[in-house]
């Protein structure tokens, strides 16, 4: 399993109700269903991913998250997850609000735009950073709202969101001892567990 999903897996209580926004091919939900007996749903728009979920027995709903989550009731899930998609939302702040409305807790992961490599790329080449991990150019990237860990934590302060847990990892989702020294410079991906 992808390393970030491994970490999220540890944060999910057995038997809980989970909604995975942008669930991909359903790997996390399939695992949570089998190992933790969660009752889970994924939202997805990619056709191949939808088919893969259906074949795996993962409940998947064809729905664009940017169209809103208004049809889902308040506090109807224990945990709402969004991995590596926040930066591609039209209004990440509104999505986080919605996630916290329909879920008791939320898990959000996103790439850190203040990582030293991104800073260096911009500082020395004077161009928008392109990497193996984020291979798009500025005009075709789905990632329209990049932020840094500091930015996200500021949003949490502004919106009265409590950060329950934070893990910062490198682009292979591994923990490195040195990331803890200066996460906003050295960490590439953050995994936050938040509530309100």
């Amino acid at each position: 399993m992808r390393a970030d999903l491994e970490i999220i897996n540890e944060w999910i209580a057995p038997g809980s109700r989970v909604l995975d926004l942008g669930c991909g091919d359903g790997e996390l939900l399939a695992h949570l269903q089998a190992e933790k007996q969660v009752s889970g749903y994924g939202l997805e728009i990619d056709h191949d991913n939808l088919t893969a979920c259906i074949e795996k027995g993962v409940s998947v709903i064809e729905k664009d998250i940017d169209d809103g989550l208004a049809s889902i009731g308040n506090a109807s899930f224990d945990t709402v997850i969004m991995t590596q998609a926040l930066q591609s939302m039209h209004r990440p702040d509104l999505i986080v609000d919605e996630m916290l409305r329909i879920g008791r807790e939320c898990i959000v992961t996103f790439p850190n735009f203040a990582h030293w490599r991104a800073r260096g790329y911009l500082a020395f080449r004077g161009k928008m950073p392109v990497s193996k991990f984020l291979p798009y150019t500025w005009y075709n990237t789905p990632n329209i709202h990049f932020c840094t860990f500091k930015d996200f934590e500021q949003l949490c302060v502004d919106r009265n969101i409590e950060i329950l847990q934070r893990t910062v990892v490198d682009h292979t989702h591994r923990h490195r001892w040195w990331i803890k020294l200066w996460p906003n410079m050295l960490g590439e991906i953050a995994i936050y567990r938040i509530t309100r």
Partner: peptide
Amino acid sequence: SRELVDGLIAAGKPVSYAE
């Protein structure tokens, strides 16, 4: 169909939906 899917999710029933 979305109304039906919303009802099924609210009832906690396993459901997949394609449009």
